[in-house]
Amino acid sequence: MNQPNDTDREVVISIRGLRNQFGSQVVHDNLDLDIYRGEIIGIVGGSGTGKSVLLRTIAGLNRPKAGSVEVLGIDVLNAHQDGRADAGVNWGVMFQDGALFSSLTVRENVEVPMRTVDGLDPQLRRALADLKISMAGLPYFAGDKYPSELSGGMRKRAGLARALALDPQIVFLDEPTAGLDPIGAADFDQLILGLSRSLGLTVFLVTHDLDTLHAICDRIAVLAEKRVLVTGTMQDMLTVDHPWVHEYFHGVRARAALDTKAAASGPTKD
């Protein structure tokens, strides 16, 4: 992939000196990370390295002990909720199992964020919700269903549709392909890639899925030793000399994913 230098690109999320601590257990210490506009960044790390905590911290669901988080130039930790909205900073979060409101249909779920928009005609809101549902790859009739009537994969898609309801610039995805069969996971990868490119989305993706990392991530950030150990492309990861990173990207599963990717894209791929 041909990407401009880091210095040329617009930073949409900037984390400096982040410290997260629960009781005496330090999850992040002095963590720095920059995320650029339009990229899909995959966050990997062993269990308990605080991948989801990092996601929740940036999305404002968890308050860190120290450090700063700037999203689109706004200091989200100190900005008032209204101030954040006034600056046009909005993001969507897709939780692991969709986290849909169980008492509402899928369409009503997608309409919930749109209700905050003043003067939006209910008919139009409904039509736009249907559009988001369709863009998330769900059939039309899924809009009338309740979350409990959907399969896990469909719930994830519905969760994505809700996350995209207000055309956010950034979406956070927590393990988007966990619990999906390989075909469903590959479809979901392509959906994220397609939406990211056509909507100009910046995607922050927490995953364990090596296939996802290979298939769609522009950049990978490895969480280890309480900080972002290394960031870079998949190719960069293969040359990192750290025991965990080496094990992760050179293990049997990683090899298999790499082979699949190579077979799919042909040997000319860089």
Binding site: D130, L131, I133, S134, M135, Y140, F141, D144, G194, L195, R197, S198, L199, G200
Partner: peptide, 17 residues
């Protein structure tokens, strides 16, 4: 253009039950 393309492709066709 790319947004228009993907939205046009995804335009839902209501099936009235």
């Amino acid at each position: 253009k790319s947004l228009l393309r993907s939205v046009t492709a995804a335009m839902p066709t209501p099936t009235v039950v």
